[in-house]
């Protein structure tokens, strides 16, 4: 009847039906920015929980599943170049015999788009990724996205 700990109250409504723990260490979000009438950039952001790793697009086949993007073809837009990523961290993984590039905390991927029509354009596609922490891995996931460029 003293000590008032407020921080936990908000959780109550969210977790009242919690059963088994479902790990979701990587969450994805997107944004878009128009550069000109005919060009735009879509940003796809991964927010990564502490201790978890997301793998770079450059990881070779022998390693963990790399992050990859597949944009649906459309007559409304075309991709300009490949999906770019910031400089990843790297670590030599003896078990794979390769240098593995990965991200921590958060990473923003970006894809430049050429717009073929006037007005809003929706860019559809999916991404694939997997994540590991310091003792386990979650299976590769596919996430669909639909990004509107206003």
């Amino acid at each position: 009847m003293k000590r008032i700990i407020l921080a936990f109250f908000v959780l109550l409504s969210v977790s009242s039906t919690l059963h088994a723990q479902v790990l979701r260490p990587v969450r994805w979000s997107y944004a878009a920015k128009r550069l000109s009438k005919t060009e735009a950039v879509v940003f796809i952001k991964a927010t990564i929980d502490e201790d978890w790793h997301l793998y770079s697009q450059t990881v070779p086949d022998r390693g963990p599943t790399r992050t990859s993007f597949a944009f649906s073809p459309s007559k409304n837009y075309a991709l300009i170049g490949t999906t770019l990523e910031p400089k990843p961290l790297t670590r030599f993984e003896k078990v794979f015999g390769i240098e593995v590039a990965y991200f921590e905390n958060s990473v923003i991927f970006q894809q430049k788009i050429k717009l073929n029509v006037n007005g809003p354009v929706t860019v559809n596609g999916s991404l694939e990724y997997m994540t590991c922490n310091d003792e386990k891995c979650l299976p590769p996931e596919t996430v669909s996205f639909s990004i509107m460029i206003k």
Partner: peptide, 11 residues
């Protein structure tokens, strides 16, 4: 951004 894509010279 983009520094990490050095492997891909086309970009």
């Amino acid at each position: 951004l983009g520094a990490g894509a050095q492997n891909d010279t086309s970009v």
